[in-house]
Nucleic acid binder design. Structure first.
Lengths: 159, 159
DNA sequence: TCAACAGTTTAAAACAATTCTAAACTGGAA
DNA sequence: TTCCAGTTTAGAATTGTTTTAAACTGTTGA
């Protein structure tokens, strides 16, 4: 079935497969430790979603998108749960939300300090490593507020 | 009627009023010239919206917001037209769209190079003058793309 | 082992912001 | 004036997300 429309190839093995059968060895170890880390109960759905999210390297994913991936992976999860989970993960620091357009928000599995290119009109996000942007002289926040984070989004187009 | 809920006081006079009657003298001069500038037909609705937008100094406005302002100013415009107009103005460079959250986008009457504080959870936008942010070392855009613009949004909260 | 309950998931409805549609209207050229 | 492309409109449709209320499931402690 060569119809990987989602774009990302998910690497399933955490240990080397030892024979021709592509049996996964300890596929949930990472997902489990992440959930424990932030104190979320490791339910079937959360585990599966965590695996999809964090086993695939750095990804920029929408809710619909992840829901589709779950479907393809034969994981039964409702869209509402996908939303719940994405927000719980975001709130506990496992994910970062990146807003690029009205009605368009991505969840980024890379929570380290970095910025983004946003390719329009494709709607594609591309990471920019921290050290290739230098922000000097940040302003002081308005009275009574504290700085939470700085988002730099460089909008680019294909001419 | 002292119920100016929208927050912005719009200055109507472009010339001094000459008697006690608050009759506006050339209230549409600026709106008209802006529309001509970008080649949009000066219709009743566009003129009225342009006036609301550009006579009030720098503003961050949502579509619903502007629709409400029009209502209060006794201007009959549909919400669909407000959206159309905001996008036409944006496309022709009269406005700039600032996206801060999923399903939350503002139109900024200040089209000069500048950045924003976004105060959460109030959802309030505050201008940052260009020269109080210094961006050095910008990355080169992905192959086949050209840089359109750089958005810096500093998210702040009231603790 | 099991009862019990808080936490979780779910389908479905509700919601908010925005866009679309098809018909009515209008500014301006001829 | 007439005419027509451009514009506006009400209302429906769409999109993305959240809420609701009921069913389910992990975990705890007897």
């Amino acid at each position: 079935m060569p119809d990987d429309q989602t774009g990302k190839t998910v690497t399933d093995r955490t240990l080397q497969a030892t024979d021709s059968t592509p049996v996964v060895q300890r596929p949930y170890a990472d997902a489990l430790s992440r959930l424990k880390q932030v104190g979320l109960r490791p339910t079937r759905q959360r585990m599966a979603l965590a695996k999809l999210l964090f086993d695939g390297g750095d990804q920029h994913i929408t809710a619909e998108n992840l829901h589709g991936m779950a479907r393809k992976a034969a994981v039964k999860v409702s869209l509402a749960t996908v939303y719940n989970t994405l927000h719980q993960f975001t709130d506990s620091g496992l994910l970062r939300e990146v807003v690029v357009g009205p009605g368009r928000s991505y969840f980024d599995t890379n929570t380290h300090d970095h910025h983004h290119f946003y390719v329009e009109p494709a709607g594609e996000l591309v990471d920019i490593p921290v050290d290739s942007v230098e922000l000097s002289r940040l302003p002081t926040p308005p009275d009574g507020t504290v700085m939470d984070r700085v988002d730099v989004i460089i909008r680019v187009t294909r001419p």
